[in-house]
Design a protein around this nucleic acid. Structure first.
Length: 291
DNA sequence: AACAATGTTCAGTC
DNA sequence: GGACTGAACATTGT
């Protein structure tokens, strides 16, 4: 799920569950998700610290602790954050998106072997729960990640990230995006250029903008880049309102045999910027179709 | 069974 | 060094 809109929802959830509270325990036993930190290193660093705020740039977020250190959380390809109330056996806080039946099963009664050596059997400690912190009010924040591509890092290096896609101003956007020979889609998804746009949101943005994913980024005029900046902002906001990038207008048409919901032409597929990309064969053709 | 999957990283090439 | 490419990463879903 996680592109900028989903990560922002997760950040807000983490904020509600942790800010102003002190971390009293943590589980960093997953050596893959917590790498390169050996088990116990993160626990030692964060237990006893109070959470001051939860920040985000693009798809990266981090807790700011009262000693100035940061605890980085990245959801990877399929991770999500879940809040669990004290003594709760009831429904966890999933910020709107409920757990599926299978996920609830793992959440409440871990039965799989998975990566966790010793499941405790407590709610929120199933094998898909990769990292947990417990706060002084008894609440817990859990990184729930079936695919295990999420990451937890102490003081993560964020220097490689470009400006957040929702905050970047128009002039900066024009300068950074309208450069280089990369296909426009690859340029928009490059987190060093602009942070926050992933595969689905990018397909939606380019479809809304009627821009070809394969068009070289530097081929766009300044006027086109300024318009694109507005569409990036609008699509990202809209995804937040709707509750996820998967609810975009064109996303359900990213399938073989589907047609453009605007002009009816066939949707076509190719790999662009290393990801499966769908676009309207007529409106987003490159080079453009002349009549 | 084979392949794709909302992301990042790293080795390799130009 | 910078820009770019493609495979790898761990695991699940189709």
């Amino acid at each position: 799920m996680p592109e900028l809109p989903e990560v922002e929802a997760a950040r807000a959830l983490a904020e509600r569950w942790t800010v102003g509270r002190t971390i009293v325990a943590a589980d960093d036993a997953d050596e893959w998700v917590c790498r390169p930190h050996p088990p116990g290193e993160i626990v030692t660093a964060i237990v006893g610290r109070r959470v001051e705020s939860v920040e985000r740039i693009g798809k990266s977020m981090w807790l700011v602790l009262d000693d100035g250190s940061r605890l980085g959380l990245h959801l990877g390809m399929a991770g999500r954050l879940v809040g669990l109330a004290p003594e709760s056996s009831g429904l966890p806080d999933t910020a709107g998106e409920p757990l599926t039946a299978r996920e609830r099963s793992d959440w409440s009664m871990p039965v799989r072997s998975g990566s966790r050596p010793t499941p405790t059997g407590l709610p929120g400690e199933g094998s898909w729960s990769r990292f947990t912190i417990e706060l002084d009010d008894g609440g817990r924040l859990v990184l729930f990640d079936k695919r295990r591509l999420g990451r937890v890092r102490l003081n993560p290096d964020l220097s490689g990230l470009g400006p957040d896609a929702l905050l970047v101003d128009e002039d900066t956007f024009v300068t950074r995006v309208g450069r280089g020979v990369l296909p426009l889609k690859a340029r928009l998804m490059d987190q060093a250029t602009i942070a926050g746009i992933g595969n689905l949101l990018c397909d939606e943005i380019l479809w809304q903008a009627q821009q070809p994913p394969l068009r070289p980024a530097s081929d766009l005029s300044e006027a086109e880049l300024r318009e694109l900046h507005g569409i990036v902002h609008a699509c990202t906001r809209e995804a937040m309102v709707r509750g996820g990038v998967h609810l975009g207008d064109v996303i359900e048409h990213r399938k073989k045999g589907e047609h453009c919901p605007r002009c009816g032409a066939e949707m076509v597929r190719a790999t662009v910027g290393g990801r499966t990309t769908w676009w309207c064969s007529f409106e987003q053709a490159w080079p453009p179709v002349e009549d």
